[in-house]
Design a protein around this nucleic acid. Sequence first.
DNA 1: GGAACACGAAACATCCGAGGTCTGTTGCAG
DNA 2: CTGCAACAGACCTCGGATGTTTCGTGTTCC
Lengths: 243, 243
Amino acid sequence: MPVTDVAIDKIKDMIISGELAPGDRLPKEAELAQRLGLSRSSLREAVKALCLIRVLDVRQGDGTYVTSLEPNLLLDAMTFVVDFHRDDTVLDFLAVRRILEPAATALAALHMSDDDITELGTLLSELEDSPTVEALVANDLQFHRKIADGSGNPVLCSLLDSLSGPTARARIWRGLTQEGAVAKTREQHTAIYEAIAAREPELARSWATVHVAGVEQWLRNALGTADDPTVPDSDDGPAAAAS
Amino acid sequence: MPVTDVAIDKIKDMIISGELAPGDRLPKEAELAQRLGLSRSSLREAVKALCLIRVLDVRQGDGTYVTSLEPNLLLDAMTFVVDFHRDDTVLDFLAVRRILEPAATALAALHMSDDDITELGTLLSELEDSPTVEALVANDLQFHRKIADGSGNPVLCSLLDSLSGPTARARIWRGLTQEGAVAKTREQHTAIYEAIAAREPELARSWATVHVAGVEQWLRNALGTADDPTVPDSDDGPAAAAS
DNA sequence: GGAACACGAAACATCCGAGGTCTGTTGCAG
DNA sequence: CTGCAACAGACCTCGGATGTTTCGTGTTCC
């Protein structure tokens, strides 16, 4: 096994064993390299890899630190991974989301604070009457994020966040091609919000299921009938359009 | 932004755009480095990082290749991430698993082939009457893996695989401390198997829920009552003990 | 006395070039 | 045709030199 991989494992072990706690600073490059018995170049490769998955955080001129290691940070790295699956396996990701989203919505109906529910309602009303597709999708992402956050389970929240990325493109495409999708999305969001506000977990769960299943069903048909199942490129997404 | 991070994005884009297809070989280090406008050292850091999340695969003496990029490979990298959450957030991971596992089991009851169901039964009968805790957990992992695989959704399967890792330790601890856990696990596995064999998705789902919820409930109590909620160290795990 | 500024040490960022090791291939001998 | 050995290509590792950024300190000015 390459020395770099050994170093990755060693550092990983140092963290898991508690020798390095979240927020701790690592020894300087030269020192750590000597201690692990490899060159600085190789050590830097290991550090860079652990950096990509948000385990370490290097600050030039300061030092290298262990991140907070909170679930949202680490699972956030999964977004990077999910990015590689845009077209072919979108349906599989969506199917998983269809399992998690209703469960999260039901949990939110139980655990969300009254203040957060109020904010959720504000989010809905902030959307103008005839929004652009991009604005709608951006609002949609925020809406579902707040619900996932309200589930009280950070792991579930981060996971849903990661899964939402790839489906966002699908939604944009849908909004552009399917008549009435905007209005329907709006109705369903309102229904979900009202179910949560009424503290009705089962009703909330059902609406969430309907909501996600709608996207899934539409996408399944679109991919099944289209000759080219590739989602059209629109690299400057919602953020750019909204500004 | 550091040049290494830029390189990571560039390579990522090359793959997403289709310029580099799964299985393709990258240009040699020196060539790619010049093309991306950085030194070989920095490029190697980028490659190493992409290697950790299973996007690239370097073979000494041969070259650097793009992996198959299949969901199981990429999500497998999440296991690495999950490893950092052994103690404090196990319950959150388990809660997510409690959502996914029943759904996967129900899907398996619908989609699993007859042959696979037969193999599932064989797996159960292979376990001796009074297995060691380690053997039981190993068998348990295989059992659930086969069911997840039978759901027909590779993303779901890989996700469950990643989530099972951290709970395995909890199960071992449980097996060691809770009387009757071994027999109960066995009964529940048999029930799940029979429900799948009978093609009863709802029954299978319920049994799976009961199964996971049992572990969750026990762990919740254990963590709640114990002064020190840390799972005891037993670094030489099932694999070492089984050999 | 307090705040803004300037300086210097510390640490990471980047690059370069040399030697080592492994792998796949090629060519020769049996 | 098969098996072995030598070769070339590609990655692995190292160590040092130089540039950049940040933080802490001491000084100066208000």
